[in-house]
């Protein structure tokens, strides 16, 4: 119980953000209207994805340094969860784009970059599946994971800022921390981010423990 308090907090925050995000008052803006509520669901997905991918790279580095099998299992599970969050982020973003930009996919640099970042991690999963030998798979997977990470950072955070993008926070558009986000929205937004990040870490931990059990049974 002492170590699990944050899991209850994660569930509470996520429920609070769903209920509060749909019911609480939001500022009225032209074009955005009620779609502004998407902020509570779309942005936390990306925050959670970035945190989870950072954890994945951290464990890949740790694996290369120590060669401990469990570190590799953690790296792959964090990457798996990150891919799920990335897909959810893409879907929520496309839904929002349909109602504000008028198209599901409007060739926006941010959308393209996010899709390519997903391709990088899907390639990582394919690479792991293509190697049978366990230690070799762990080592090569860790190397590709670390090699791809800086490229993903450039894709998501540098390139969209250099071109014209409709996405808030890019191409001279106001981001969510300027006038868009008033104090009422912060009351939901910050707990939503914290809740989804903790939920992501929790899912990855559970998946790691499942995989560890499978592994232990296989090696008996």
């Amino acid at each position: 119980m002492k170590n699990n308090w944050w899991k209850f907090l994660a569930v509470a925050f996520v429920f609070y953000s769903i209920i509060g995000g749909l019911l609480f008052e939001v500022p009225v803006r032209a074009i955005l209207n009620e779609t502004i509520r998407n902020l509570y669901f779309h942005v936390p997905m990306w925050f959670a994805m970035i945190i989870v991918f950072c954890m994945s790279v951290f464990y890949s580095v740790k694996y290369l340094r120590t060669g401990h099998e469990y570190d590799d299992l953690k790296a792959i599970e964090y990457a798996n969860v990150g891919v799920i969050f990335g897909c959810l982020g893409l879907i929520t973003g496309m839904l929002w784009a349909q109602f504000t930009w008028g198209e599901w996919w409007s060739n926006d640099p941010k959308q393209n970059s996010a899709a390519i970042a997903m391709l990088i991690y899907l390639a990582y999963l394919v690479l792991r599946n293509s190697i049978d030998e366990e230690q070799k798979r762990a080592r090569i997977g860790a190397i590709y994971n670390i090699f791809a990470f800086p490229v993903m950072i450039v894709l998501l955070f540098v390139l969209p800022r250099m071109t014209d993008s409709l996405h808030p926070g890019n191409g001279g558009n106001p981001g969510f921390n300027s006038y868009d986000l008033d104090s009422r929205m912060r009351m939901v937004f910050y707990p939503a981010c914290a809740g989804w990040i903790m939920l992501g870490l929790w899912i990855a931990q559970i998946r790691f423990r499942m995989r560890k059990l499978e592994n232990d049974i296989l090696h008996q």
């Binding site: 391709l119 990088i120 690479l127 293509s130 190697i131 070799k136 090569i140 490229v151």
Partner: peptide, 23 residues
């Protein structure tokens, strides 16, 4: 180098390389 360690697969080279080269 990564692809050559993983079964010398030419498809793998394209899958791994294209997303990296896009930016």
């Amino acid at each position: 180098a990564i692809a050559s360690k993983a079964n010398n697969n030419a498809t793998l080279m394209a899958i791994l390389g294209f997303p990296i080269i896009v930016p």
